[in-house]
């Protein structure tokens, strides 16, 4: 019995190591002083970070990803919050179909959605011009995350609160602004954070819809990795990890995150 427990404990430890290993390895590899990704590393240095800082392609890709992420998040936040309000308050018997419809982009294979959008935008004559297709794709795949988080917030709220505000003399809109919106805020913040991270990291949609011109970071990184094996990619990856972490920590610092379930 004790041996079994010990083995189980060891197994769990290995799984946790398994979860963290690739991430830790990327960060360590970025500190490699050598010219190639060798192990053990040939000394520690930040030289690949400096190489990265001089590489305009990667810098532009990061900037592009941030702008795209912010724009898609803003759109998803508005559309997703409205949909969540509808789902919790008004959908009634249609609730289940509304939920499934909005989660559709999450359930359908991303690569298939990406292909479908690519064809569609070509057929209507827009193609990948002006990043319209890319932006639409990012809104689609971030929408479910905003929706799920806001729904969780709203479901935790006493629906009577809004009626109570009305009974105290608040107009419909005032009740929404003073009561419902503040109570939905934690879900909106969580949802926006999720949306940004998903947009920042997503691949399939971006790969298919990127078009010519600027590409998001994951695409730039992927293209680079296919043909290069220098630790510069590790440095770029590390920066991307740090950016994501920074988003989480900032959101936590300013708004106080709650871990929400799927």
């Amino acid at each position: 019995m004790r041996l079994a427990s010990a083995l189980l404990g060891l197994f769990r430890l290995l799984v946790y190591v398994f979860l963290l290993a690739p991430i830790v390895v990327v960060v360590l590899a970025s500190l490699n002083a050598g010219n190639f990704l060798t192990f053990p590393p040939q000394g520690l240095s930040l030289r690949w970070f400096f190489t990265f800082l001089e590489n305009e392609v990667f810098l532009r890709a990061i900037g592009f990803s941030v702008v795209l992420g912010l724009a898609a998040t803003a759109a998803s936040l508005v559309i997703g919050t409205m949909a969540a309000l509808y789902y919790v308050r008004h959908a009634k018997r249609r609730a289940e179909s509304v939920r499934i419809a909005i989660l559709m982009p999450l359930i359908l294979p991303e690569i298939l959605t990406a292909i479908a959008l690519l064809f569609f935008f070509y057929e209507v004559g827009v193609g990948t011009e002006y990043y319209i297709a890319l932006f639409t794709g990012h809104v689609l795949i971030t929408l479910p995350f905003v929706f799920l988080n806001v729904v969780t917030s709203l479901q935790g709220m006493d629906e009577m609160c809004e009626l109570a505000a009305r009974s105290l003399g608040a107009k419909r809109f005032t009740a929404f602004r003073r009561i419902t919106l503040p109570l939905a805020k934690p879900g909106m913040i969580n949802g926006a954070l999720f949306a940004f991270i998903i947009s920042f990291d997503t691949f399939g949609i971006s790969y298919m819809l990127k078009g010519t011109g600027s590409a998001p970071l994951p695409i730039q990184l992927f293209d680079y990795l296919r043909f290069n094996f220098t630790p510069e990619a590790a440095a770029v990856s590390t920066v991307s990890i740090i950016l994501t972490l920074a988003a989480v920590i900032l959101a936590d610092r300013f708004f106080g995150l709650k871990v929400q379930r799927f």
Binding site: D158, A164, A170
Partner: peptide
């Protein structure tokens, strides 16, 4: 009439207190 124009005071089974406001904030709302 809309509820807000009826001049009623209502106490709910769940109390429906505004969780993001203090006691004084709740009382001042109306």
């Amino acid at each position: 009439r809309e509820p807000e124009d009826r001049d009623i005071g209502m106490v709910f089974q769940s109390y429906a207190l505004f969780p993001h406001m203090t006691v004084a904030g709740n009382l001042a709302f109306g």
